[in-house]
Design a protein around this nucleic acid. Structure first.
Lengths: 233, 233
DNA sequence: TAATTTCTTGACACTTTCTTAACAATTTTA
DNA sequence: TAAAATTGTTAAGAAAGTGTCAAGAAATTA
């Protein structure tokens, strides 16, 4: 599975240059020319790396980095023409993993990207989460990579958020995930603490996955705490 | 506790410059002017960060990095005057976490050091999170982080407060926790001193965990004092 | 642009949990 | 041993939490 990278850069030429380089290196590349859209894409696709020019306008770029850092450890590489010491310090302290001055060397950028991937793998290994590619329990099969869910070998259509929620639960099978944790993971860190929308999503998931009441249960409610699925078989 | 940094650089002036900077920033600094000695120091003191100029002689510096990487994830920051793309790629691919060109900006170096420390902490946290700490005694298993309780491998459903109480007892296994202490821990410091509600909760817990009277006891009453569980096995 | 799907919100019914009080059982004290 | 204090048990109403539905907003697709 190719790694997903998103490039967020207001400068069209620079964006395209980086995009070409990464496509040639077999990454699945997404791009955006503004922070707001970029943030939305990030929270949707959960990229493996973020490459961003946080310069124009700088303040917003720094805020972007901080916002992402609130809820994700996804590596962030900052590119910028403003090579001042001050800029570098601000960007790195905001939470970026690396800061590279423009114009950059192609191969060096790629090496630094590789380094970030190494790092992520290190963290995953430390977690012990030899990230399974799928979850399976009594007829329910969730394939994380291909965004697909099967019930007794029949494909079930889930909406984007439904899939995110079931994936999150399945990736933490056996653990009770708190409402707050789920909410923040799906809707970002500054979501309201009204769990109504989560309840609706769980209800819809259950309708799709547990059509016959009392037949098979996949999603369990731990009252006052959160939701849970059984460990994968 | 101050972080330990080792600086390995054959160039005396450069070494001293970096040393001064880091001492001023409250690191515990070690230095060496050659890779062999540096390697010995590293394996002895287990520094938190390694700063190295792998340039002279280049090949050896790369080997140093690779050797350390064989057995340690200690962050390595490479400094060098040879700012070529080729050098950068070789150094980073050898296993360095960062590559900074000389002459460097002091504050930027410090920011990158901070970033490395953040990273280490992240990995440590990940390592810790997998060790879902738990209490286990004669068939009773309490997993603190995943909000789960098992009795002879069967999941037992507890309410939020029941789980809080049993967790508190298990985290202090062997010790008698006073009624007052438990009350304040669960219901906050300004709760009434009527222990009725605690007694009800303990009774409910016992019903769930000790269904057969006289069969197995988990929660012990120390009359006049409080409750206790046996030490974890 | 219209049609369709998905998202989000609020209202409300239903379920679970919390809390209190009364009383029974046990332990401690005198 | 009897009285007093402490602890355990039960039941019921109150409070809080959860599931469900429907309608409009927003996003996506045709």
């Amino acid at each position: 599975m190719n790694k997903k990278i998103i490039i967020i850069d207001t400068d069209r030429r620079s964006r395209h240059l980086t995009e070409k380089l990464l496509i040639k290196s077999n990454f699945k590349v997404f791009t955006s020319n503004n922070f707001k859209e970029g943030y939305n894409i990030v929270s949707n696709i959960m990229p493996d790396i973020i490459i961003i020019d946080p310069l124009y306008p700088k303040k917003e770029g720094l805020n972007f980095i901080k916002s992402v850092r609130d809820w994700s450890h996804c590596p962030i590489i900052a590119l910028s023409q403003n090579g001042t010491e001050r800029a570098a310090v601000e960007i790195i302290d905001a939470g970026a993993d690396d800061f590279i001055r423009k114009p950059y060397f192609s191969d060096e950028l790629l090496a630094r990207v590789r380094k970030c991937i190494r790092n992520t793998q290190l963290i995953d290994a430390a977690k012990g989460s030899i990230q399974d590619s799928h979850y399976s329990y009594n007829g329910l099969l969730v394939k994380f990579d291909s965004n697909s869910v099967f019930l007794n070998n029949t494909r079930i259509h889930l909406t984007k958020n439904e899939f995110k929620i079931i994936s999150l639960l399945c990736k933490n099978a056996g653990k009770v995930l708190t409402y707050d944790y789920i909410m923040k993971s799906i809707w970002g860190p500054q979501t309201s603490n009204n769990t109504g929308i989560l309840r609706v999503n769980i209800a819809n998931l259950r309708k799709k996955l547990e059509p016959e009441p009392q037949l098979e249960k996949y999603i369990f409610t731990e009252n006052g705490v959160g939701y849970r699925v059984n460990e994968s078989q």
